[in-house]
């Protein structure tokens, strides 16, 4: 499953820039720019949005992110012209364009379904992703929660690319994992931790079955994400 992402902006350059930025962290995801008017002026184009929707929907759905007000109106109008089936696969998300697009792209790259990609975009509004970060300890009789601390070795800290890689791996785990108390599936929450080289990263899960998930993520951090 790969959900596509459509970037609707008043500016052709902004749309293309956001696509470049988000695409860098999410190879294999169709991210389409729909910026500017038909003749490249500032504004939004119904035709560009309509063509963008068609080019972005592979059948797994599309998450649409917009900048200023009338971009939303244009996107909603374009949706009105889709048939019911196609429209049901598209979701316009109210989130900051750049941060929302990056978070959505990473979620889409990890194979998340449309609702989860949309939720990831909304984390840019300060909302929690997929589910609340797990905090309650599991039942103590079933071997209990599991925690492991590792040291971040990357010279530049947990910057965008390794953070994206980390979130993709976390999103593929069944058990919920937190990183220093933040949801491991939320790119923006992880990046918000500001982890620099030498930081101690504590991974934990309340779910006894989450032990392999914590170990896999800990090993990824210890590996330095392929950077030296």
């Amino acid at each position: 499953m790969t959900v596509g992402i459509l970037i609707v902006s008043h500016s052709e350059k902004i749309a293309e820039g956001v696509v470049d930025l988000a695409g860098q962290m999410a190879s294999g995801v169709t991210i389409t720019p729909a910026g500017g008017t038909d003749d490249g002026r500032i504004g939004t184009s119904f035709d560009r949005v309509t063509a963008g929707l068609a080019a972005t929907d592979s059948g797994d759905g599309v998450v649409v992110l917009c900048d200023l007000g009338s971009a939303v109106l244009t996107a909603e109008t374009a949706l009105d012209f889709l048939d019911d089936e196609a429209r049901a696969r598209v979701e316009i998300v109210d989130a900051p364009l750049v941060e929302g697009a990056v978070a959505a792209a990473v979620a889409a790259a990890s194979g998340s379904a449309r609702a989860d990609v949309a939720a990831a975009a909304r984390t840019a509004n300060g909302e929690t992703a997929v589910a609340d970060a797990p905090t309650s300890p599991a039942d103590a009789t079933t071997s209990g929660p599991y925690e492991r601390s590792v040291v971040l070795v990357n010279r530049d800290g947990l910057h965008a690319r390794p953070a994206a890689e980390f979130v993709k791996l976390a999103s593929r785990q069944d058990a919920p994992v937190t990183v220093n108390g933040k949801d491991a599936r939320s790119l923006l929450a992880i990046m918000g931790l500001g982890l620099t080289a030498g930081s101690t990263v504590t991974l934990s899960t309340p779910d006894p079955a989450g032990r392999p998930a914590v170990d896999a993520l800990a090993e990824l951090i210890e590996s330095g994400f392929g950077e030296t």
Binding site: D38, G43, T44, S45, S70, L73, E76, T77, D80
Partner: peptide
């Protein structure tokens, strides 16, 4: 209007 106006008034008057 929807496909040529480019600002908010396109979708609004168009709709």
């Amino acid at each position: 209007l929807i496909s040529t106006v480019g600002g908010a008034s396109g979708p609004l008057f168009g709709t």
